[in-house]
């Protein structure tokens, strides 16, 4: 088995905020999906959400820039650690992610073996 990191990416859109009912529905879909991965033994670690603020430090000058990260169209909203046979299976697992319904994406990255 190999390990993969799922990076959940969302675009920062100016869409009107979801209603409480819609938010609850979205969340329940996520909870169900995480639970399913857990029950199938695919979820090594559920991971964490990441705050939408932060700093970017870059360049030789070590310039510190405030988030949100206006240069990139989408930002990482969280990550999970998933176990799968190979990249094909990891991708297949990612297909169940509710993020696609809101126009987000999942970046599936193999963890390099040392």
């Amino acid at each position: 088995m190999s390990e993969f990191v799922f990076l959940y990416r969302n675009e920062l859109t100016g869409a009107p905020p979801a209603s409480p009912e819609q938010m609850q529905q979205t969340m329940q879909k996520w909870m169900a999906w995480m639970k399913e991965m857990g029950e199938k033994g695919q979820l090594k670690n559920a991971g964490h959400p990441l705050d939408r603020t932060g700093k970017v430090v870059k360049g030789k000058q070590k310039t510190v820039i405030d988030g949100p990260f206006t240069e990139s169209k989408d930002i990482v909203g969280g990550y999970s650690l998933v176990e799968a046979k190979d990249i094909a299976q990891a991708v297949e697992i990612s297909l169940g992610c509710p993020i696609f319904e809101s126009g987000g994406m999942v970046e599936v990255r193999p963890v390099m073996k040392m």
Binding site: M23, T26, W30, M31, G77
Partner: peptide, 11 residues
């Protein structure tokens, strides 16, 4: 929003 982010991962 907080609940959505945190409960997603932690239940």
């Amino acid at each position: 929003c907080r609940a959505l982010e945190v409960w997603k991962y932690r239940g």
